[in-house]
Computed example of a mutant assay.
Amino acid sequence: MRLHILTPLATILDRPDIAEISARDDSGAFGIRPGHAPFLTALPSSVLTLRTEHGAVLYAAVAGGMLRVHRDGVHVTCPDAAVGPDLAPLAARVAAEKAAGLNRQREGAAQERTLHAALVHHLLDSVTGDKAGEA
Rank of each mutant, 00 (worst) to 15 (best):
L119R: 12
H54N: 10
V83P: 06
L9N: 14
V120Q: 10
P85C: 02
G129I: 00
R51N: 06
I12L: 14
D72Y: 12
P85E: 14
R24S: 13
G129N: 13
P79H: 03
L119E: 08
L50Q: 06
G133S: 14
H54C: 02
H4G: 00
A109Q: 12
A42W: 00
H4D: 15
Q105Y: 05
M1Q: 05
G129Q: 14
G28L: 03
E97F: 00
T41D: 06
R68N: 09
L13P: 03
R106W: 05
P89L: 08
V69R: 10
L9K: 14
L58P: 01
G55E: 06
T49Y: 00
F39D: 03
F30G: 04
R51I: 04
A19R: 08
L43W: 07
G55S: 08
V69Y: 06
V69L: 09
A56G: 03
L102I: 05
V74G: 11
C78M: 02
A132R: 13
S22D: 14
V57M: 10
I32T: 11
Q111I: 05
L13A: 13
V94W: 04
Y59M: 05
D72F: 08
D80L: 08
H4E: 15
H122G: 02
L43V: 09
A118I: 01
C78W: 02
C78Y: 01
T77N: 15
A117V: 11
D130N: 12
T11F: 00
T77Y: 11
G101S: 11
A29E: 15
K131C: 06
A118R: 12
P89R: 07
P34W: 03
H75W: 12
D86C: 01
M66E: 15
P89K: 09
R71Y: 05
V47S: 03
S45G: 11
D86R: 15
L13V: 04
A117S: 11
S22F: 01
P79F: 01
H54Y: 07
R113C: 01
S45A: 15
